[in-house]
Amino acid sequence: MFRFESGHRLPSLPVEHKCSRQHGHSYEVEVALTAFSLEAPGFVTDFAALAPFGEFLRTQLDHNNLHEIFPFEPTSELLAQFLAGWFIENLEPVIHGQLVAVNVRETGRSWARFDVEGQ
């Protein structure tokens, strides 16, 4: 599980909707991986190999306003989709496992999952 703190707003929502105003979340991001075989000593992927993903979250998203970074409204669903694309482009070529899904959690009760097709 990876974590970062960020703010955002969703301006396309009606002005009376609470998410149209600036607010923040303690985001949690989970990646689900699969493999047809395991690497010694029994890994799909060594968790240490995922460090660049955590570094990306820390340096690019942590303590930023997400609506100022992305060209899309940063809903949990669109964040999960974007992060899946980043992971596939930047980590899949150098790790053993393949990405199955990305979960983005805004709160203990609010989360979204983006499933990678073809996995």
Results as ranks from 00 to 15, higher is better:
77 E>Y: 08
44 V>L: 15
99 L>S: 07
71 P>W: 02
88 I>K: 12
58 R>C: 02
57 L>M: 04
107 T>I: 02
43 F>T: 10
86 W>N: 13
97 G>H: 05
76 S>A: 15
33 L>K: 11
38 L>I: 05
100 V>W: 01
103 N>R: 07
80 A>W: 01
47 F>V: 09
92 E>M: 07
60 Q>A: 05
48 A>K: 08
66 L>T: 08
64 N>S: 14
103 N>W: 03
98 Q>L: 08
50 L>T: 03
106 E>L: 12
33 L>M: 13
58 R>P: 00
82 F>Y: 15
65 N>M: 06
108 G>M: 03
102 V>A: 12
51 A>H: 02
82 F>W: 15
54 G>L: 15
67 H>I: 14
34 T>W: 12
68 E>H: 10
68 E>A: 12
98 Q>D: 09
42 G>W: 13
95 I>K: 08
106 E>T: 04
50 L>S: 03
84 A>G: 04
95 I>T: 09
36 F>P: 11
39 E>N: 10
54 G>C: 12
82 F>R: 03
47 F>N: 10
101 A>I: 06
61 L>V: 07
37 S>Q: 13
104 V>L: 05
72 F>P: 09
77 E>V: 05
49 A>E: 15
33 L>C: 08
47 F>S: 13
57 L>P: 04
64 N>T: 15
46 D>V: 14
98 Q>T: 14
86 W>F: 15
106 E>G: 11
88 I>F: 11
107 T>R: 03
89 E>F: 14
99 L>M: 11
60 Q>F: 06
108 G>C: 04
55 E>R: 13
92 E>N: 10
90 N>E: 12
50 L>Y: 03
107 T>H: 01
96 H>Q: 13
90 N>P: 00
57 L>E: 06
38 L>T: 14
84 A>K: 07
95 I>F: 11
60 Q>K: 05
97 G>I: 08
69 I>L: 11
93 P>R: 12
43 F>R: 13
83 L>A: 12
70 F>A: 03
97 G>C: 07
72 F>M: 12
57 L>V: 06
73 E>L: 04
90 N>M: 09
99 L>I: 11
96 H>I: 12
44 V>C: 15
86 W>M: 05
110 S>E: 03
65 N>E: 10
48 A>L: 10
105 R>Q: 14
46 D>K: 07
88 I>H: 01
110 S>N: 10
109 R>A: 08
103 N>K: 07
99 L>T: 06
78 L>Y: 04
55 E>I: 05
78 L>T: 01
56 F>Q: 13
96 H>M: 04
106 E>Y: 07
48 A>P: 00
97 G>P: 00
37 S>L: 08
